[in-house]
């Protein structure tokens, strides 16, 4: 049902209906943001990646061939963009281009303000940053986005066996780190 709905929206958009694209953005921007947020642990970075992915969707939607689900395709773009963002950030940090203090100030003012579990959320995000990117990606997709291994495999292009192993290691480390904090 979802697949058919997406297909209709994409076709309408390709026929020039901009409202169809707006509907797609309303439907997927949250998912894009939360994937990026889980990977980056920073509201502003996630915001930037989300905007970038939506612009890419607008430009590249004509290349979507309906062979897979639209959300799988969108997740693939989001995953690639997020990993690229992490790489770029590491390079910037290496050459001391990024201002860590500024990043800290920025990350304080994000959408989690006034939320009752603010500290716990912050702790989960900090713990997520301590595990390798590959493991983090599987963990985020499996737990927060509720995707199964087959879907994650389609998005990341990795084998189900490898993903299971990564998930197991991620789960172990995260549990350890969360208990440590407690």
């Amino acid at each position: 049902m979802e697949f058919v709905e997406d297909k209709v929206l994409v076709k309408e958009f390709l026929n020039g209906n901009e409202i169809a694209f707006k509907k797609l953005v309303d439907k997927y921007s949250k998912k894009i943001y939360w994937h990026a947020r889980g990977m980056l642990n920073n509201h502003f970075d996630a915001d930037e990646v989300t905007q970038e992915v939506i612009i890419v969707l607008y430009k590249k939607l004509h290349t979507f061939n309906f062979e897979s689900n639209l959300y799988t395709w969108i997740y693939r773009i989001t995953s690639t963009r997020t990993l690229n963002f992490i790489r770029m950030k590491k390079v910037k940090e290496f050459f001391s281009i990024s201002d860590e203090k500024y990043d800290e100030i920025r990350s304080e003012s994000n959408i989690q303000n006034d939320f009752e579990h603010k500290d716990e959320i912050k702790r989960i995000e900090q713990v997520l940053q301590k595990i390798p990117t590959k493991q983090r990606e599987v963990f985020v997709m499996k737990n927060f986005e509720e995707l199964d291994y087959k879907e994650i495999s389609e998005i990341t292009g990795k084998s189900v066996g490898g993903l299971k192993a990564n998930y197991f290691h991620a789960l172990k480390k995260i549990t350890e780190l969360l208990n440590e904090k407690n």
Binding site: S29, I54, I55
Partner: peptide, 10 residues
């Protein structure tokens, strides 16, 4: 706001 912002950019 995020959606409106991106659509405006486009």
């Amino acid at each position: 706001l995020l959606n409106a912002n991106v659509l405006n950019r486009l």
